[in-house]
Amino acid sequence: MITLLESRTVNKRFGGLQALTDVSLKIHRGEVYGLIGPNGAGKTTFFNVLTGAYPIDGGEFVMNGAELPVGKPHRIVAHGIARTFQNIRLFRELTALENVMAGHHIRTSAGVWGILAQSRAAREEERLVTERALEILDYVGIGRHADTVARNLSYGDQRRLEIARALATEPQLLALDEPAAGMNATETAGLRALIETIRADGVTVLLIEHDVKLIMGLCDRVAVLDFGKKIAEGTPAEVQRDPGVIRAYLGDHRAH
């Protein structure tokens, strides 16, 4: 098992509230790693700290053996981490294709002068980016909507587009924040298939999800957060049997 990302005693406070306390975990290359826990357990906060949206208050993230820069979202993307948002955040007035092409920003290099002069390199890069973006749209299954403005896409397709945009940054780790939220059963099944394809293609997936069935079916390993602390880690089956977890989280669901 090669460790792709490791968090070491990560802490985050909001005023008096300790949102994350010494969260340490290791994500292996090529796995789907689930992060679960009741509402307010600190899952999204963990994402936000990991991706540099919030400054970290203690601890560190190590990716491929190198410490990640702190509080610089764009540089963290350069290190190979891409994310989606719980409440979809697309560039709503841009087309699906433009959204994905924007995602290529960090992996392309055309500068102002090259663009103004339409240098051969700039034109070639633009052509490649267009081609690649169309491929990614096909890959997530919304290729036929390439020229549709993002806000006009159906909810499920918007989720897919957000994943496509994240994939365009060529991540090693794809962090999905509740991708199945608000989806119906068919859409969720499609999403599951997509995530499995993504994993099969060598991208490691970090998944926050409330849909227990999805987590159990998809994840290789799962960590459980409760009140900002990791209370369990292991295979879905192990975690499911963990008494602490049942008390904190799964118990709620079984009660239904």
Binding site: P73, R89, F91, L94, G103, H105, T169
Partner: peptide
């Protein structure tokens, strides 16, 4: 495209690098 991304959603723009 980067400008358009910033205009539409700055946080998301940061999140794609």
């Amino acid at each position: 495209r980067a400008w358009a991304a910033i205009r539409e959603d700055e946080l998301a723009a940061k999140a794609i690098g």
